[in-house]
Simulated assay, not measured.
Amino acid sequence: MADGGLTVLDGSQIRNSLTQLCNPFDSPISGFIFLEKATSQARTLLFGLSLPEHLTSIVGERVGLHDPDFLSLQLDPDQAFLKLRDYLQILADKLKDDPLVVSILDGGVLRLFLEDEDDFAMLAENIFTDLDLEDTGKLSKNEIQNALIQMGVEMGVPPFSDRMETDALLTSILKKHGAEGTEELGQAQFAHLLQAVLQDLADSLSSKPIVVIQDIKVINGSKLRKVLDDQKQLNEITESIFRDVTSKENGPPSIEKIRGYLERKGSELGLPPLEANPAVVLLYGQVFSGLDKDKSAELEREEFEGIVKGIFKAFVEELQANPVFHDLES
């Protein structure tokens, strides 16, 4: 996918590979070497991404990698292969329930700016103006780093301090062009230096893309699906909703009141909050428009659970078909 855009890592990349996975082990290995191999295999399948610690911890625990004796354990090739498949399958399942949203930075967006002289001139001018806070018409060379920070992932620039190798790449490019100094530059000189830095960065990313995890949650109905699969939990949640919508203040239950409850507390069940994006309002409208009953009519106790379950199923179907992206920074 073009860099600056979003790619969802939902485990499908791993699941597709499992059908063709061959045993990479031809001799016994220790648990320590296995862990290195499994981590490397996962990174290869996920565009070189270093997985978040919380994710590797969950997968490792379920595969038994946290056993104090595991690192020194000797595994024959068949044992290692089976455990590798378990590791990748569990990782794929975890990503299906809780996908990661990433940007794959491969230099594409930067090249678009660099190849269009007018676009680049406007970009450089805007950045220079934003950074020239005192309106002196001059900026020091080391402001190039702030220019890169201002451009950010949306313009194809990886963030500083994201990973050690990313910092090393950006620092080496800045050092190569003397962009760490304090010499003052006019707007044209600053634009020329920025162009050279961005060209080197685009070339580096083209040969070795960088994957950046975005602070975006994908809400795909997986949490609500687990509720539907657990009758005890479903009963408890239904009872909680019933008590809420039949309180003294609310009166008898109705579909309209169920909707109000979910709009207020649906995020606790894995539903997207209304403020996530405008599509959520449409999602609620789609789900509740499919109900035949009068939305404000009083519901009998015995039909309440069936209606709630039907609403949950409708949300799951809609979210599986059209997941909602929730920017956690907003």
Rank of each mutant, 00 (worst) to 15 (best):
G5C: 05
S12K: 14
S12W: 02
Q13K: 07
I14M: 08
R15E: 15
R15M: 14
S17V: 00
L18C: 12
L21S: 08
N23L: 07
P24N: 06
D26G: 12
I33E: 11
I33C: 00
I33Y: 06
E36D: 09
A42E: 02
R43W: 01
L46K: 00
S50G: 10
L51D: 07
E53G: 09
E53H: 13
E53I: 13
H54F: 15
H54S: 14
V59N: 08
G60E: 04
G60M: 05
E61H: 01
R62L: 13
V63T: 15
L65H: 01
D67K: 08
P68H: 11
L71M: 12
S72L: 10
L75S: 07
P77H: 05
D78L: 12
F81H: 09
L82C: 09
I90D: 05
L95N: 08
K96C: 05
K96H: 12
D98Y: 03
L105H: 01
G107V: 01
G108A: 04
G108I: 01
E115S: 15
E115M: 08
D118R: 14
L123W: 00
N126M: 10
I127Q: 05
E134F: 12
K141P: 04
K141D: 02
Q145S: 11
I149E: 13
G156C: 08
V157L: 09
F160K: 02
M164W: 13
E165D: 15
L169M: 15
L170Q: 04
T171A: 14
L174T: 03
K176E: 11
H177L: 01
E184Q: 13
A191P: 07
A191G: 14
H192Y: 05
L193H: 02
L198N: 02
Q199W: 01
D200N: 07
D200Q: 00
A202W: 01
A202F: 03
S206I: 00
S207R: 09
S207K: 09
I210M: 07
I213Y: 07
Q214H: 12
D215R: 10
G221Y: 06
L228P: 04
D230E: 10
D230T: 10
D230S: 13
L234K: 12
N235S: 14
N235Y: 05
I237N: 03
V245K: 00
G251E: 04
S254I: 07
E256D: 15
E256C: 13
K257A: 12
K257Y: 10
I258F: 11
R264A: 15
L282T: 11
L283F: 06
Y284L: 03
G285I: 03
Q286W: 04
Q286I: 06
V287K: 06
V287W: 08
V287F: 13
F288R: 02
F288W: 05
G290H: 09
D294F: 04
D294I: 03
K295C: 06
S296L: 05
E300Q: 14
E303A: 06
K309Y: 02
A314P: 03
F315W: 01
E317I: 11
L319M: 12
A321S: 14
F325T: 02
E329Y: 05
S330H: 13
S330D: 13
